[in-house]
Computed example of a mutant assay.
Amino acid sequence: MKIKTILIRTPFYATLLLMCLTAHAELNPQQRAAKQKGIELYNQYKAISAIEPLEIAAEGGDNEALYYLGEALRKNNRHMTPEAKKAYESSAKKGNIYAMIRLGRIEEDLCSTMKNCPQGENSAGSWVVKAKSLAIQRAKQGDSESMYLLYEMTGNDDWLEKSAENGFAFAQFRLATKYQEGNGSFLLPSRRKQAIEQWMKASAENGYPLAMMGLAAIMIEKNDLASFRIWNEKAAESSYVEGVFGYASYIGEENSKYGFAFDPVKSYALLSNLTELNGGGNVIRDVNDTLPDIEKKMSKEQIEKAKEVAKTWKTSHPPLSFFPDKLGY
């Protein structure tokens, strides 16, 4: 089976950012900057803070900004609100399949239990039909992401496999994790392990950070510490929060059981950068537990140097992100 790795030269996060910034040229500079900031905050689990910049970008009619605005509003309120639905509908009208899927799943939303789902221009069923039709059209043109969305809508594993085989990094990761969870038929356990590693590696090489950490975990099981260190560091370089924390913690150990070189300055720098996530995710608790222990091992000069390293790292790497599933709840 041939695996396409179409994003090897352009990492997943960079490709995603490029798509976000160039998909709609009608945005003015202020709106483009607001969109980038809004999505950055959303990906750091700061839905409340993301709303204002996403509203600015949404004024320019950008379908991606409208979708994320809907997501931020819905997650902040824990259910579909009229404002969120309006944003989704505006995005869907511009061809955003993710927005169509979200509108098609309104009966799964908490608002359905609360019996206060906002009325819309179209029924949930009609949005599902439109989403499938558009996804099939794009899939026929070779769009691997649309193949994945057809899997989301149908539950047909064939679409997940086609998407993975055609190089969609997230589909490759999902296929690997499905096999890890016991799905799929394999004659031998060793074949399952081979398939898991095959697809996790394909996704990691395509630049998907969660797959980098998944592959690192596989390397630990194989006792391949050198490969574990490589993929853990790559995940950190991508600014995946869990990767940054793990890597920073390991290099802050004087005798790392995984063979990382002791570097308290860099460890302190990366951990201190993670403190900006206060209010987003739960990593701040782990950082607050770890950072003081690293600081005890450092001189005042080292701490000052670490602060400079932190600034340099931040300007030379993508924004910190949890890389949440775009259709996740």
Rank of each mutant, 00 (worst) to 15 (best):
K266N: 15
Y258G: 05
F173W: 15
N156E: 15
E276G: 03
H79Y: 12
I101D: 05
F12C: 06
L187C: 06
C117M: 06
E165F: 02
I284G: 03
L16A: 14
S112A: 15
E197M: 11
N232W: 02
N116Q: 04
Q137I: 04
A50W: 01
A92H: 00
A99L: 04
P209T: 05
L215H: 10
G61Q: 09
S299G: 07
L187I: 07
D289V: 06
I251D: 03
R191L: 14
A217G: 13
R174M: 14
T113Q: 11
L320F: 13
D286N: 09
Q30L: 13
I39E: 00
W159E: 08
S49F: 08
G281S: 08
S190E: 15
E55R: 10
K132S: 08
I218N: 08
R102Q: 13
G214T: 08
A135F: 00
M213H: 05
N116R: 03
T290S: 04
L27N: 12
I251A: 05
T10G: 02
Q119E: 15
K178N: 14
V309F: 12
S49Y: 09
P189M: 12
L18H: 14
G279Y: 06
R192E: 12
K2N: 10
P29L: 00
K266H: 15
Q31V: 07
A236C: 14
L270D: 01
A34W: 00
I39H: 01
N223F: 03
E205Q: 15
V283D: 02
G279Q: 09
N282Q: 14
L225V: 10
K266Q: 14
S91A: 14
K296F: 06
R9T: 11
L17A: 15
A87R: 01
Q302W: 01
K326E: 13
